[in-house]
Design a binder for these strands. Structure first.
Lengths: 330, 330
DNA sequence: CTGTTAGCGCGTTCAG
DNA sequence: CTGAACGCGCTAACAG
């Protein structure tokens, strides 16, 4: 069980001062080629690797990007993390992931942990319970740049990357109405979260604009699961006035809705049109009856990452850019 | 833009030596209650947070666990990462994720990076191209414990967590045969990867044992995608002798197979039984015609994590435990 | 109970 | 071209 080899070890063996070794290993021009070769050769042979922790302590380098999401295990977020990880890697950063499990308590602890670890920057999407923002604002005190994406907090002054939820939902409502659907339900999440609020507002706006009397915004704040989707479908079709179109905010819930309708012998899309947010190619392959609203995941991830890098390089510019992507119907 | 507050800052302001401050902050019994209170109060007020990098450099603490997977954006792996992240967090570790994109070149670089960052330990599943193990063996030189899961390398002497792929595939073949299926195809990955080799062997074993003349092991080594699944289905049904059962190793490919069969008006499960590996609840909800082989993801993640912690605490015990979980049919 | 000193691994002065 | 000395933030060992 050998110990990790350090610059000092090399310097001792080669009887060269450790500062020279350091220079040689960074290929400094101010070291004689010959000694440089000797040092590099020895280092390579014995598997010398810089200890990033030392660099981080000195403050010259920070190479960790923290990504905070409600659930890693969720198509959208897994995609985001995947893209960010690749990009980060190509720029010599590594990615640490944090999961809040939709709990604000955990989220607060996570932010503490992020600060402890003195990361280079943070890319975050908030939990379903997050209505206050102090724990995020806290990052500023420690000079840790923050970018928010998708589920953002409006009241916080940082760059944000979002999808135009308002627009797309409004558009969907309009499309449905033009196809003759006049009882359109919107299944959404808590209106305390910006994403869902925007979708709800988009829905309400268009419903009113078109003068549709039926207005039904179903809030599922018990979490987005297949079971909750089934439950929602049951409830919605218990009423006398039954919907003929459903806009669903969750790719998981919509599966529940879909199977429940099948069970109840309600035909999709003949009796009921279904439109759902979702980015999973398997699901869209399997349920062509459902139209999916696809968010540009890759673009969102890239934009978030780029913004963060910018912030890391130029921390002082209080840029509160807001990048808004269009969603698409597939 | 204030700088991060350190122990020394506190010690200066309070005119107490920084070592005393350090002790107070760690609630050492050898500091007078009064001074302790003063210090803690001041620290709290000014948002003091230990700098983990300093601790890491000293070597007293290592709090980063690296998880290396082929794709973060893959049900199985996203699940694993999710569970590990939660467990890690509860034990004061944070998780850095690394993605090899199925490339051994990238994998080698990733391992370098892991060593650079001097992590506490590594939990890994290898890429599809990984046939050599030197880069993993390298970790040992730097005293970084390694646990492998699912896609493991047999020739490397570390604890491993696997699913009994051989058994489950053999069992599936037997079941199918008992139900009258005598032309069973197995769609698998490269036999250079232990997981797939085991599945292939399980298949071959049972085919031979039962004396089934039809023996068709389809290797999809272009990656597991929906498209590849379609392609596979096309090819398989071009032949004169057509399969009446398909065992598929990939939840993504099977979607392709499934839609292709639909297109070709081949009925599932009447004409062809389909059994596939896969852990996605949405998919199984949508395709009840397909029987899924479910791996105990949570258990695998927990076992891997526990083994790693054990290794971290007791690095010297050269335990090469092998934990093998049973897969289940749903 | 508190202060002093030293060192984790490294890079960057500043001298020579 | 190379060596000596210092400090990043923190803790442990030693001294008082």
């Amino acid at each position: 069980m050998t110990e990790r080899i350090t610059i000092k070890d090399i310097s001792k063996k080669l009887k060269i001062h450790h500062s020279t070794v350091s220079r040689a290993l960074r290929n400094s021009p101010q070291v004689k080629e010959e000694t440089k070769k000797r040092i590099v050769k020895y280092a390579k042979k014995h598997g010398y690797k810089v200890n990033m922790n030392a660099l981080k302590l000195r403050g010259t380098v920070k190479n960790v990007i923290a990504v905070i999401v409600p659930n890693i295990n969720h198509d959208f977020f897994a995609n985001i993390i995947s893209v960010i990880t690749d990009m980060a890697y190509s720029k010599d950063y590594i990615v640490s992931v944090f999961q809040t499990n939709e709990s604000i308590e955990l989220e607060k602890k996570v932010l503490d942990s992020v600060i402890h670890n003195n990361v280079a920057g943070v890319i975050a999407s908030v939990s379903m319970q997050t209505t206050t923002s102090d724990h995020y604002k806290n990052l500023k005190k420690y000079n840790i740049p923050l970018i928010m994406f998708d589920r953002v907090i409006d009241s916080i002054d940082v760059p944000k990357v979002e999808t135009d939820n308002y627009d797309i939902v409004a558009k969907v409502v309009k499309d449905l109405f033009q196809k003759g659907r006049d009882r359109i339900v919107h299944i959404s999440g808590s209106d305390k979260i910006s994403v869902f609020r925007n979708r709800i507002n988009g829905y309400q706006y268009m419903i009113k604009k078109l003068g549709i009397p039926y207005n039904n915004n179903y809030i599922a704040d018990n979490g987005f699961t297949i079971e909750e989707g089934k439950l929602a479908a049951k409830r919605l079709f218990e009423n006398k006035i039954q919907p003929n179109a459903i806009i669903c905010d969750s790719h998981l819930m919509v599966i529940g809705v879909f199977s429940q309708l099948k069970e109840m012998k309600i035909s999709v899309p003949d009796d009921v049109s279904i439109i759902s947010f979702g980015n999973n190619p398997s699901l869209s392959a399997l349920t062509p009856e459902i139209t999916y609203i696809v968010q540009p995941v890759t673009e969102i991830a890239i934009a978030s990452f780029d913004l963060l890098i910018e912030k890391i390089k130029q921390p002082d510019q209080s840029s509160n850019d807001k990048i808004i992507f269009k969603a698409m119907l597939n």
